[in-house]
């Protein structure tokens, strides 16, 4: 077995250590003896989605996101088909916003990919801090760090999780992220996958199933360190509960 991971714009969308998600996907395949190829997609070049099993998109500054947005418009149609046909996608922060219809920044309205019927509006107060979610996708709590000026309005879509501690999609502390078909969109840095290996394995299993047809059960890996790191944050969160901002 083998997976091909397309990494969208490593030179533009690379904020907040999000390339850690890539090394997590890669290593967890390698540790199980499954082949993996990473295709770094250069901005402005054509993309062959039929050769990709998993797509990863990170975030950038507003300026870089605008550049990325321009490049993505050219492959909008193919990207849309990839998602509708069950392609696996992890989009973090800026990448998450770009999947939507538009992002209203302080000064202008950036047109998104329109793959999801969601939109984002910018507000001056940034939403910053550690965050913990409860999600139907995995048994353990999802831990991470959010840092965004945009508020994302997801309408009736299924969120990634309920916010146990933190601010979430719109800053009201209710819901975070999105889960649509095989797409996960989220504001969570940390990076997300090394901290939450269950989500990583879920993405890998989904991509393998899409590629090889039958359900794949990945062999378990020793994740004690991940669990301790996650539990440590949950413990700290509990101590802070009811005392305002969670650090």
């Amino acid at each position: 077995m083998k997976l091909v991971i397309g990494h969208f714009y490593p030179e533009l969308l690379n904020l907040y250590g999000d390339r850690g998600n890539l090394s997590c996907l890669r290593m967890r395949l390698q540790w199980r003896g499954i082949g993996v190829t990473v295709v770094p997609l250069a901005a402005g070049e054509p993309v062959d989605f039929s050769g990709l099993d998993l797509v990863l998109m990170g975030g950038g500054s507003d300026r870089e996101q605008e550049l990325a947005c321009g490049f993505l418009q050219k492959i909008k149609g193919e990207f849309y088909r990839y998602v509708e046909e069950g392609g696996t996608v992890l989009a973090v922060c800026g990448g998450y916003q770009l999947l939507g219809e538009y992002y209203q920044t302080r000064t202008k309205k950036l047109k998104g990919l329109g793959i999801l019927g969601i939109h984002t509006t910018w507000e001056p107060a940034r939403l910053v801090g550690n965050i913990i979610l409860d999600s139907g996708l995995c048994a353990d709590a999802i831990v991470g760090f959010e840092n965004h000026g945009g508020r994302t309005w997801i309408g009736d879509y299924e969120p990634l999780g309920r916010v146990r501690l933190g601010l979430g999609n719109t800053g009201d502390g209710a819901w975070e992220g999105i889960h649509y078909k095989n797409v996960i969109g989220t504001y969570l840095h940390g990076p997300l996958l090394p901290k939450n290996p269950q989500i990583c394995d879920l993405l890998l299993e989904t991509a393998l199933k899409e590629k090889y047809g039958s359900a794949v059960r990945l062999s378990p890996l020793p994740d004690e360190l991940e669990q301790i790191a996650g539990r440590e944050m949950v413990k700290r969160g509990r101590r802070r509960q009811g005392r305002g901002l969670f650090h």
Binding site: G17, D18, R19, G20, N147, G190, H247
Partner: peptide, 15 residues
């Protein structure tokens, strides 16, 4: 560490 002086977010370790 992740005190206010250090920055609360440790994601940068992955950069």
């Amino acid at each position: 560490n992740d005190t206010a002086q250090d920055g609360r977010d440790v994601s940068w370790l992955w950069d």
